[in-house]
């Protein structure tokens, strides 16, 4: 049991959460990161779906990596991912229909999310199943983290609510406070993500200097 959670394995899991974050550092999977973050709930659901899919596709590919011929590996990877995405999309439709309508095509687009192909190519094709599973889970959660940060800021400033509950009290509005409608527009997602990357890099640079 102690071997399963050795220091290397913990590093494999925790590096993508901060220092090696898939969005802020590796620049993978931006496509869907922006479109689903106008509110917190879809951002959380999307982040968790991606985490589940990266973890299990990494696990499956790593289990069969020795039997895949090198020439057709991309197709094999795509088929595994597409099958997993189909399952997740059906589960979402069955248990969280409202959110799956909100996410619309972006659930299907997890197939072409660069994080998946990136991790499969760079990690799962060369490492054992357990490490690959941890790596996939870590990267998926690192992705979810950025999504939730951007989603929180956009929902708080754009609608004055969090997860659909009103958090900015009515008295503020009576004093003349207004929701920033700009925040719910797609353009602000890009600018906010730019700022997240800015803060992330500035913070890590300071830490390295110390």
């Amino acid at each position: 049991m102690s071997k399963l959670f050795s220091k290397e394995n913990r590093a494999v899991f925790s590096a993508p959460l901060n220092l090696d974050n898939p969005i802020a550092v590796q620049v993978l999977g931006i496509c869907s990161a922006l479109a689903v973050t106008s509110q917190m709930q879809p951002a959380i659901v999307m982040g968790l779906s991606v985490a589940v899919i990266t973890a299990f596709s990494n696990l499956i590919i790593s289990l069969i990596r020795k039997t895949i011929p090198n020439r057709i590996r991309i197709i094999v990877q795509l088929v595994v991912v597409a099958a997993l995405v189909t399952i997740v999309s059906m589960v979402l439709k069955a248990f969280a229909y409202d959110v799956s309508v909100q996410l619309s095509v972006y659930v299907g687009l997890i197939i072409t999310n660069c994080i998946l192909m990136g991790r499969l190519e760079a990690f799962a094709m060369m490492n054992g199943p357990w490490e690959s599973f941890l790596d996939g889970l870590g990267n998926g959660l690192g992705y979810a983290l950025v999504l939730v940060v951007v989603g929180t800021v956009r929902e708080l400033l754009g609608n004055g609510s969090l997860l659909g509950f009103q958090v900015i009290p009515q008295s503020f509005y009576d004093m003349g406070y207004m929701n920033n409608g700009m925040m719910t527009m797609p353009a602000m997602a890009l600018i906010l993500l730019g700022c997240v990357i800015w803060v992330h890099r500035a913070y890590n640079e300071k830490k390295e200097k110390k």
Binding site: M185, P186, A187, L190, I191, G194, W198, R201, A202, E205
Partner: peptide
């Protein structure tokens, strides 16, 4: 450009401004 913003950060902000224009 400020150093931590160089490369990816400023590109995102540029694309954001372009998206605003396209709105």
């Amino acid at each position: 450009v400020p150093k931590p913003l160089q490369g990816l950060g400023i590109t995102f902000i540029t694309v954001g401004l372009m998206a605003m224009a396209f709105m």
